[in-house]
Simulated scan of single mutants.
Amino acid sequence: MSARKAVAAALCLSLALAPGCAAPPRAPGGGAGREARGMGGGVTDRDVEVAESLGAPEDILAAMRRGEWPTARSKRNVRVAEAAEDHLSGRYGERFRATRVLVSTGFMPEPDTITCAVETGEHAGETCVASVSYAEEPVWADDYLYLRLHGEYERKLGDIARDAFGDLPEGSWVMEAKMLDYQYPAATPDAQGGAREVAPDASLEDAGTVVDGYLWVFVSPEHQLAEGDFDARAGRVRDALDALDVHVYWEVSQITRPLDGAEFTMEWSRYAEYSWNSTGVFRGDE
């Protein structure tokens, strides 16, 4: 499977699970059918505030203002949202406000997914999505790591491409460097079968095996490179990515399909035929 196809498959899977993000690993023996913590007690002022932020209908809010939970579902939605706000705030030291909740209600347990607005810090105004599965303890994942690191990740991959191909005429090549907007778990399995914690302030270097993304480079059919020249440039990309120590899919291709009046763009190049091609996957400093 080519790097393009592998990344496309990963993206399709993530979109099928939750918009813009991948689901966290399911907790062994658990699921969202397990009772979440913090479900006890009557309606509080915070419960009403969170329900308003979630866009609850007025009849739900009216019942809550009277101190009544109108349904078990509304209570679960609110308390799961509060758990996400508390988890994210405790982990990252910023304030988060839940705006949407999707709780698992089917026979097959799936994680609960909570969308939050980031209200303080460097990423205030952006959106953070968290997911939680339930076993003996909640198992959390979120995409705040993406918010923190994607700019640096994409800039470094772009610099690698420009170093190898930047001397070619303008418009003769295109590239796309992307860190995937996944919900990354707070801990990942290690080689010994245990868990390796991902620090909330982890640098790109520290999170190299956790993050995921890709670099695609395409050379125009109207600017054909000799095989030796192409191989040398692709080798520079490969070596630089290897030294970067991050998880990345990469592919460099010399397109042969004629443009026939089309504009040479990333979208046009994505599935075009090629004469020379180099591809691979680096998994970080393992």
Rank of each mutant, 00 (worst) to 15 (best):
residue 4 R to Y: 10
residue 6 A to V: 08
residue 13 L to D: 14
residue 16 A to C: 13
residue 24 P to T: 00
residue 29 G to L: 00
residue 32 A to Y: 11
residue 33 G to S: 11
residue 33 G to A: 14
residue 39 M to W: 09
residue 51 A to F: 09
residue 56 A to C: 14
residue 60 I to V: 15
residue 62 A to K: 10
residue 63 A to I: 10
residue 67 G to P: 03
residue 68 E to I: 15
residue 76 R to Q: 14
residue 79 R to F: 04
residue 80 V to L: 15
residue 86 D to T: 12
residue 90 G to W: 03
residue 90 G to M: 06
residue 97 R to S: 06
residue 107 F to Y: 13
residue 114 I to Y: 10
residue 114 I to S: 06
residue 115 T to P: 05
residue 116 C to K: 02
residue 116 C to M: 10
residue 119 E to Y: 02
residue 119 E to M: 04
residue 119 E to P: 05
residue 124 A to V: 04
residue 132 V to N: 02
residue 136 E to T: 13
residue 136 E to M: 14
residue 139 V to T: 11
residue 140 W to I: 07
residue 143 D to P: 05
residue 144 Y to F: 14
residue 151 G to D: 10
residue 153 Y to C: 06
residue 158 G to Q: 10
residue 160 I to W: 08
residue 161 A to K: 02
residue 161 A to L: 03
residue 163 D to Y: 09
residue 176 E to D: 08
residue 177 A to S: 08
residue 180 L to N: 09
residue 180 L to G: 07
residue 180 L to K: 11
residue 180 L to V: 13
residue 185 P to G: 01
residue 188 T to H: 07
residue 196 R to G: 08
residue 196 R to M: 13
residue 197 E to D: 12
residue 198 V to S: 02
residue 198 V to N: 05
residue 205 E to H: 08
residue 214 Y to G: 01
residue 215 L to V: 04
residue 216 W to M: 15
residue 220 S to P: 01
residue 222 E to S: 00
residue 226 A to F: 11
residue 233 R to H: 07
residue 233 R to T: 03
residue 236 R to Q: 15
residue 238 R to G: 00
residue 240 A to S: 15
residue 247 H to Q: 13
residue 253 S to P: 09
residue 259 L to V: 02
residue 266 M to E: 11
residue 268 W to L: 06
residue 272 A to S: 14
residue 273 E to Y: 06
residue 276 W to G: 06
residue 277 N to A: 13
residue 278 S to K: 08
residue 278 S to I: 06
residue 286 E to W: 10
